[in-house]
Nucleic acid binder design. Structure first.
Lengths: 206, 206
DNA sequence: TAGATTGTTAATCGATTAACAATC
DNA sequence: TAGATTGTTAATCGATTAACAATC
């Protein structure tokens, strides 16, 4: 019998559930229900229960879900119950902002190396790390068995960088470059382009 | 006969099409086809034709689409054939990076006012603008008929800021805060949370 | 003309939702 | 026990895809 694949769209919602559960936990709440969670997230309770049912049974009739238990379970499913080293490519304005962003480490994502190909940037120090020449990228990835990378280079350079990352063995890329990257289907890519998000809203305005 | 609504998911793809068309245009190409565009974006050609068919007929059998014509049409549909003033709330590390980001203006999005409630930040100058007290927000939005806002404050403050924005008459919010905002359904919201994007990929890694 | 590609229809596929027995 | 809420089934809904006549 073939493994039943969990749809991408379900995996995509789990981090949102996790984020909401963490918030509730920090507020001191111990239990929640699919109804409450759904109302907070603006989605249906049935969808939450269906999504979770792909992975097991995590709740109890009548009382709902123990928040910290469910957090632990979703963290395991998503494999974020561990530390993930990441490399950052590009140390311009955006890259520097990412390097200084405090929100990654507490979620287990550690920017362990930073690369740029501008001689003026190579050698600069950022909280304990030194910006390296992109030429070193493959070596660092291999030596440290790194699987994730963030691209923060200009659009014109992004595809070349993506090719280098794939060649180096990177398996997941978060790209801030405003282009659609072409990579083998063994490599996962997520894009962040604020202009695209703004353009998704203007249609609904007058 | 009731208007047939164009699905959100179709609107969501148009900015991606626009971005790819702009790239082709900048590369000097004059015509493209749904097949070529689909291959560049990793989606089916039928989907592109179907999406466009919601708005009219933009191509020609045998030759495909004139790139600049299609760009103009999609720009009009998305209402990005005009200038959009935006306000930015939050002038911490992330807010500062956004304020300096050069990618908005060329697409017609102008950060016309910046707000923060930290006295140390109020009064700081950023390319011709001065960071203002959040108390002025409603006044500025009303005076300039501003409809879009970017939230770049900590998670703990984001919902309060969102409430203020809604109260002030803002109709579209791009939030960088790592929480799901609760707003009336007359207000559009888009979220950017890099941690969520990273967590959507770790599931697929070993 | 022959080849290419559109716009559209109908079929397929997949995701969401409603409903409810089970049970805490 | 009575009330609440789960996990799951089946129905509905909506999106994607394949196919092709039309036509440039």
């Amino acid at each position: 019998m073939a493994e039943v694949e969990v749809p991408d769209i379900v995996i995509g919602r789990l981090p949102i559930y996790l984020r909401a559960l963490t918030l509730l936990s920090e507020a001191g709440q111990e239990f929640t229900s699919s109804l409450e969670l759904g109302q907070k997230l603006g989605i249906g309770s049935a969808q939450i229960r269906k999504d979770l049912s792909h992975f097991g049974e995590f709740g109890k009739q009548g009382t709902g879900y123990e928040i910290n238990f469910l957090r632990t379970q979703i963290s395991k499913i998503l494999k974020v119950d561990r530390e993930w080293p990441i490399i950052l490519v590009g140390f311009g304005g955006l890259g520097q902002a990412i390097a200084h962003y405090g929100g990654f480490a507490s979620k287990g994502f550690h920017v362990d190396a930073i690369f740029d190909n501008d001689p003026d940037k190579i050698g600069q120090a950022v909280n304990g790390k030194t910006v390296q020449d992109t030429a070193n990228l493959a070596q660092v990835v291999a030596d440290n068995k790194i699987k994730m990378a963030i691209i923060a280079v200009p659009a014109t350079a992004a595809q070349v960088v993506a090719d280098q990352l794939v060649e180096a063995g990177i398996e997941a890329i978060l790209s801030y470059a405003p282009i659609t990257l072409s990579v083998p289907n063994t490599v996962r890519v997520q894009h962040i382009d604020p202009v695209v998000h703004l353009q998704r809203m203007t249609y609904y305005l007058d």
